[in-house]
Every structure is written in structure tokens, then in C-alpha cells.
Design a protein around this nucleic acid. Sequence first.
DNA 1: TTGACATGCAACTATAAGGTTGCATATGGG
DNA 2: CCCATATGCAACCTTATAGTTGCATGTCAA
Lengths: 112, 112
Amino acid sequence: MVFKALADESRRQLLDRLFARGGQTLGMLAAGLPMSRQAVAKHLAILEAANLVSVHWRGREKLHYLNPIPIGEIVRRWVGKFEDARVESLTGLKAELEDAAIEIKEKRNVRT
Amino acid sequence: MVFKALADESRRQLLDRLFARGGQTLGMLAAGLPMSRQAVAKHLAILEAANLVSVHWRGREKLHYLNPIPIGEIVRRWVGKFEDARVESLTGLKAELEDAAIEIKEKRNVRT
DNA sequence: TTGACATGCAACTATAAGGTTGCATATGGG
DNA sequence: CCCATATGCAACCTTATAGTTGCATGTCAA
């Protein structure tokens, strides 16, 4: 799942590295990160499963690339439905605030 | 953090509910979800911390709203930097594939 | 073919995360 | 004032996840 994949800092760092330079091998990516090669392999597997990273085998080397499908598109597919909700929610908030104001007014009347 | 907040299905459901109707109380949101009120409260706290949900107190009731700042914007701020990487990455992939093709050709030549 | 290198697989550990229960606190209404 | 209601706080349990180590597999190059 995309959000779970992006939720981890190490995985975002891996995406950063692939952003800086595509086609890196597992070994290249693992070197310089403060964790074992196997840990990196796991992260890359998760990124692959989330369709954020694609791979290409060249002999015994596994080359990693940011997925051709734009990450933004994948994410937008998930959050897009909330885009239009914003205005309505704000309206709702406004209404509630007004309700509260009225209630306070009413109380003042009772007490006076 | 936004992605961690969005990574959980229960929290996405809560956003769905607030999308359907803003200004719901903790109790309202908890009713109908297969978990305790306290669990929902924790999720809402995480959504608040991630700036996805804003609250407004009315007496003893806590009203929840999707954050005025569009969720899409928040998310885009995180993934935006990868948007432009796509083309370059594809180019990189293309180059690697061509490299691979050349290697295979060279081998054929050696063997032939 | 053999050795070195690149990756995969599996078992295990530690910590974080989602969930529960029980009790405390604060507000509103009669 | 008192009780019901709405939420908060804290301890605890269970499972998921990030990480480790050790060994197996597969490919290149001499």
C-alpha cells in the first residue's frame, strides 16, 4: 500500500536516492545507509509492491528506478476525493460556530 | 506525520466520515466503528497532529472537521519533488536497457 | 570449473502501533 | 447540587514492523 510504503523514513530516503540517480543496484543503495543490505532489500520490496519503484535485472544486478507511473498520480488517486470536501467542511465549521454563538446569546438572556 | 497518519485504514475511514459529514463529535465517530471510543480518540489525535483534521470545542463536545488546508496540498508538498524525477528516471531506465542490449550483442559476437 | 560477488531466503529480536479496560475530569440539565 | 454525558488519561496486551545474523542461490570472470 502506497501510504504505508511512504510512511517510513528509510524508504523515503531510498526514493530520494533513486530520485538523485536512477538505476542503482541493491548494493549501491545499501552502501551509505546505516542498515544492513537485507534491511534495504526489504524496504525496496515494499516500495516495489506499492508500485513506487520498478526494477530491471541485468545479469546478477538488480537495477532500481522510480516507477514510471508518477508517484503524485498514485497518491492523488487516494486523496483526490477529499479535495472537494474542503469547502463543505469549512461551511460546516462556520455553521457550528454560529450555533455556538447563538447558544451563548441565549444563555445570557436567561441569566439576565 | 502525514503519511503515517494516512497509512492506517481506520484513520482513512474516519476521514471518509468527516468527508461525508463535518462537525461530528468523538462519540458520533466512534459509534458505528468496530472499536472503542478511546481507540477512535487516539486515531483522531494522530489525524490532528498530522494537520489533517481540525477540532472545535463546543462545551463538552469536541467537533471534528477535515482540515481547511486541503489534504491534497499537504500530500503534494511531500511527493512533489518526485514529480519531475519521472522523466529523468525513465531516461535512465532506457539507457540501462540499451546498455544491456549492447552487452548481449557483444557476447553474441564473442561466442560467434 | 571455481572462486568471488550480488542477491534471496529464513529465523530471530526489539520496538512501535493499534487496541482494550478502568478510572478521572469537566460540562450541561433538572 | 447532583447525575448523566462527553471526553481525557494511563496501564496494559497483542501484533506488526524494522532491524539483525547466517546461510543458500545464482551469475560473472578468470
